[in-house]
Amino acid sequence: MTNNGNKYLAGAVSFAVFAGVVGPAAAVSWTPPGVTMGVPLGAAFAPGIYVSNLTHYGDGPDKSITADVPAFTWSTGWKVFGASYSAVVIPEVLKVQNKVTSKDFAGIFSPLLIPVSLSWNLGQGFFVSVGEGIYFPFDSDVSFTTSGQTSGWAAETRVAFSYLKDGWIVSANTIYGVTTADDIGRRQPNYFNVDWTVARTFGKWQVGAVGYGAWDLEETVTNAAVGKGHIVGVGGMVGYDFGGSKLLLELTRAVEQGGATNYSRNDTHVWARLTFPIWKPAEPGEEHTALK
């Protein structure tokens, strides 16, 4: 919550709702902590166009959220500096219920464009990728904006390290975000996220552990707390490969929380991700694909 009676609603889906006069921002990253769990982003898809649709429900002491986050990835098959080049577009539809005020908010969050993502195959099952993305200004009840105003921008650098060999999937996907203010000067703090996965495949099945962490890189001040907000969550994952498409189911719980933040230590989240190609060239290349 914020000063002057504003209601700032945010969860692990990284959005905000403002319904009043100006007050200080509270901590929450633009990219939802946990949304890349289970996906070894260090390795590129095989050439083609893919949809990875994440449906997400979270419930905590003071709010519940529902989100649908489709990611559209074009893995070009082109080589840039020896790396596989991809581009990604990620819209996000959100609904939040504030249990304190009994109000619901829904809408489209600021869209994310990642025009450049480069993945290097280092050999022996090791991959590393670097991507640059940007959230565009947007006017929505669930964007990082004061009511009636347009949100600012946010730029992200994404670096992922993945190991894929002998049935093992081990990945750390990191995100560094730099934010700008909305029309009236209200801004979220810069942030750092990491989503991690340790999993093993058994035939068509995949079983493992997942987790996430998000940390503010600047202090924020609210009427409840002062300091850098953070959240850490852990959970489990099970997946199944249908042959071309892949389903991942995850369950997480936030186990550590602190600072001036709208995250809740007791938040429980359920994640379901279906990934499938919508187009592939007639003769795909030999790059690794997470669907393989």
Rank of each mutant, 00 (worst) to 15 (best):
Met237Val: 05
Thr76Phe: 00
Asn173Leu: 06
Asn121Val: 02
Pro91Phe: 02
Ala43Val: 04
Ala254Lys: 00
Val270Thr: 08
Leu122Ser: 01
Ala290Ser: 14
Ala46Pro: 04
Lys99Cys: 08
Lys292Met: 12
Val93Asp: 02
Val128Ile: 11
Gly34Lys: 06
Pro281Tyr: 09
Phe105Asp: 04
Pro91Lys: 02
Leu112Met: 05
Gly34Ile: 03
Ser52Thr: 11
Tyr212Phe: 15
Ala290Met: 15
Glu256Arg: 13
Leu112Gly: 00
Gly244Phe: 03
Tyr191Asp: 09
Phe72Glu: 02
Gly125Phe: 04
Val178Glu: 12
Phe109Gln: 12
Ala25Ile: 05
Ala290Ile: 14
Val238Gln: 01
Ala19Met: 14
Gly82Glu: 07
Val13Glu: 15
Ala172Val: 10
Val210Pro: 03
Ala12Glu: 15
Gly131Arg: 00
Ile231Phe: 13
Ile49Arg: 02
Asn190His: 11
Ala46Trp: 00
Ile184Gln: 09
Glu92Gly: 11
Ala83Phe: 03
Asp195Phe: 00
Trp153Met: 12
Val142Gly: 00
Glu92Gln: 15
Glu219Gln: 13
Thr174Arg: 02
Phe202Arg: 06
Leu217Asn: 10
Val35Ile: 15
Glu287Phe: 07
Tyr135Gly: 01
Val69His: 01
Trp215Met: 11
Phe192Cys: 06
Ala160Gln: 00
Gly82Phe: 05
Val89Pro: 01
Thr2Val: 13
Thr289Pro: 06
Ala44Lys: 00
Thr275Val: 12
Glu287Asn: 13
Lys103Asp: 14
Trp153Gly: 03
Val232Arg: 14
Arg265Glu: 10
Pro137Cys: 07
Arg200Asn: 10
Val35Thr: 12
Pro277Arg: 09
Gly239Pro: 01
Lys79His: 10
Trp153Ala: 06
Val170Glu: 09
Ala71Cys: 05
Ala225Tyr: 08
Val17Gly: 06
Ile49Trp: 01
Val142Met: 00
Trp74Arg: 09
Phe161Gln: 03
Thr275His: 03
Tyr135Ile: 01
Phe242His: 11
Ser102Glu: 11
Thr150Ile: 09
Gly235Leu: 04
Gly131Cys: 04
Ala10Thr: 15
Tyr240Gly: 07
Gly258Glu: 00
Arg253Asn: 10
Ser14Tyr: 06
Pro32Tyr: 07
Ser264Trp: 09
Trp78Ser: 13
Ser64Pro: 03
Pro32Phe: 04
Gly259Lys: 01
Asn6Trp: 11
Gly203Gln: 08
Ala46Thr: 09
Gln257Asp: 08
Glu92Thr: 12
Leu251Phe: 10
Gly82Cys: 08
Thr268Met: 12
Gly125Arg: 01
Trp74Ser: 07
Tyr85Arg: 08
Thr201Arg: 15
Leu247Lys: 04
Ser140Met: 05
Glu92Tyr: 02
Glu283His: 15
Ile65Cys: 03
Val100Ser: 13
Met237Ile: 06
Ile134Asp: 00
Ser84Tyr: 07
Val221Met: 10
Val226Leu: 14
Val194Thr: 12
Pro284Arg: 03
Tyr85Met: 08
Leu122Cys: 05
Arg200Lys: 15
Ala181Phe: 02
Lys246Thr: 03
Gly185Trp: 07
Ser140Val: 03
Val13Gly: 14
Leu94Val: 14
Thr180Arg: 04
Met237Lys: 02
Phe45His: 10
Trp196Thr: 13
Asp182Gly: 09
